Computed example of a mutant assay.
Amino acid sequence: MSRAVLVERPGVHRLVEREVPVPGPGEVRVRVAAAGICMSDRELYEGRRAPGYVRYPVVPGHEWSGTVDAVGTGTDPALLGRACVAEGFRSCGRCERCRYGETSLCTAGYAETGFTEPGAFADHLLVPARLVHPLPDGVDLRAAALLEPAAVVAAAVRAGRPRPGERIAVVGAGTLGLLAVQWLKASSPAELAVVDPRADRAAQALAFGADRALAPTDADGATGAFDLVVETAGAPTTAASSCLLARRGGRVVLTGMFSAGATGIDPVHLSVSQLEIHSVFGASSAAWADAVRAFSLGLLDPGPLVTHEFPLDRFDEALALVGGGDPGTGKVLLRP
Rank of each mutant, 00 (worst) to 15 (best):
G88P: 09
P149D: 11
V132L: 15
A239W: 07
D227H: 15
R158M: 08
L300A: 04
G138M: 07
L125F: 07
K331Q: 10
G93S: 07
V272W: 14
A240F: 07
R212Y: 08
G261F: 13
R99M: 08
F310C: 05
A35C: 13
A233P: 04
L6V: 13
V268M: 12
V127H: 11
L44T: 13
F115Y: 15
A78R: 14
A320M: 01
P128R: 14
G221S: 08
D41E: 15
V332M: 04
R158W: 00
V58R: 04
R163L: 11
G224E: 06
L228I: 08
V22M: 06
A78I: 00
Y56S: 01
D326I: 02
F310G: 06
G209A: 09
T116I: 04
S241I: 00
A260L: 15
V20Q: 11
M1F: 00
C95G: 08
L44E: 09
A151M: 01
R212H: 09
C106L: 10
V16K: 03
D69G: 04
C92Y: 09
A294V: 00
D76N: 13
V12H: 07
H278D: 11
G138F: 08
A262D: 08
R335I: 13
L176I: 15
G298M: 02
A233N: 05
F310W: 09
V230N: 02
G221E: 11
L270F: 15
G72C: 05
A205T: 03
L333S: 03
M39V: 09
T75D: 07
G264L: 13
F315W: 11
R130D: 11
T103A: 09
E46Y: 07
A240Y: 06
